[in-house]
Structure formats: structure tokens, C-alpha cells
Amino acid sequence: MDQISPDSPQYVYEQLAAIIERKIRSGEYPPGTRLPGELTMTHEHKVGPGTVRRALDILRDRGLVVTVRARGSFVSDPLPPAPEAPAPPA
């Protein structure tokens, strides 16, 4: 789901980071691709610029995005491996 839910217990910036990460991992934003600008993302997801910046901070911390000053944010190439899903209880 690529929509932010105001009823979710997750912070809006965490939801946005998860949406962008899904798009990166699915190949919608392949490695090396420039992400949409902050202004575009604020309009597309109906959030404030601070929310977009915090979401990008999370993605940078995860190694999924690299930001180049005055050029924008780009999908890392190569991508780091996806985190392992927790094993189901035995």
C-alpha cells in the first residue's frame, strides 16, 4: 500500500520511508535513479517537507539512498541486502 494512514501507530515519516523503500526494492526506483524532489513528494503524499526529509534520513541510514547537495537524492548502487524477516515462532 502506497498511502499514508493517519490512523497508523507508525509516524508519518516512517510510513513514507517504508513506501519509498518498497518502491526501491520492487525496482520502481532502480539503483542509480534520481528520486522525485522533496516538493514533488510533499504534493504526491500530502505531507510536509520536514516529513520528506526525515523519511530520506531513514533511507540514508539504511544505505538505500545517497543525497548529493544541489543534485538530489539517488538510489544507492548497489543496493544493500534487504533485512531478514524474523523467523516465525516454532
Rank of each mutant, 00 (worst) to 15 (best):
I20C: 01
A17G: 07
L59C: 03
R62N: 12
D61W: 03
T33L: 08
D57F: 06
I19K: 01
A82S: 14
A85T: 09
D2F: 09
L79A: 09
E14M: 08
A90N: 08
P86T: 03
Q3E: 12
V68H: 08
P31V: 04
K23W: 10
P81C: 06
T33N: 10
S5K: 13
K23R: 14
A17H: 00
P30S: 07
L16K: 00
R69N: 07
Q10S: 13
D77A: 09
H43R: 15
S8F: 06
L64M: 07
V66D: 09
L56E: 01
Y29H: 13
A85N: 11
R62L: 11
G72V: 00
E14T: 10
L79F: 02
R22W: 06
E38F: 03
I58E: 11
K46E: 10
P9E: 10
L56Y: 12
E84M: 13
G63E: 08
R34F: 05
V75H: 00
L39E: 15
K46A: 12
T40P: 03
H45G: 03
V12F: 00
M1K: 07
T67R: 15
P86M: 05
D57G: 12
T67N: 08
L39A: 14
Q10N: 11
L64E: 00
L56Q: 04
M1R: 09
I24P: 01
D61A: 13
D61I: 05
V52F: 07
L35W: 05
I24A: 02
M41E: 09
E84W: 04
P9K: 11
P31N: 04
T33H: 12
S8Y: 05
E21R: 15
P80N: 10
V68T: 12
R54Q: 12
R53P: 01
P9N: 08
L16A: 01
L59H: 00
L56N: 04
R34K: 15
A70R: 14
R34L: 14
S8N: 07
G48V: 10
G48K: 08
L16C: 01
R62W: 04
E44L: 11
R22V: 06
I20K: 00
G37N: 12
G27V: 01
P36D: 01
P80L: 07
R25I: 10
P30H: 06
D2H: 13
Y11V: 04
S73H: 09
S76Q: 09
P36A: 05
S5P: 02
V52Y: 03
S8P: 02
Y29D: 05
S76H: 08
Y13H: 15
M1H: 09
T42L: 08
G72N: 06
V52T: 05
G37D: 13
T51K: 07
P88F: 08
D57L: 11
D77V: 00
G72I: 08
L59P: 02
A70I: 07
D2L: 11
Q15Y: 06
G50R: 12
S5I: 01
D77M: 04
S73I: 02
R71Q: 15
E44C: 03
D7L: 12
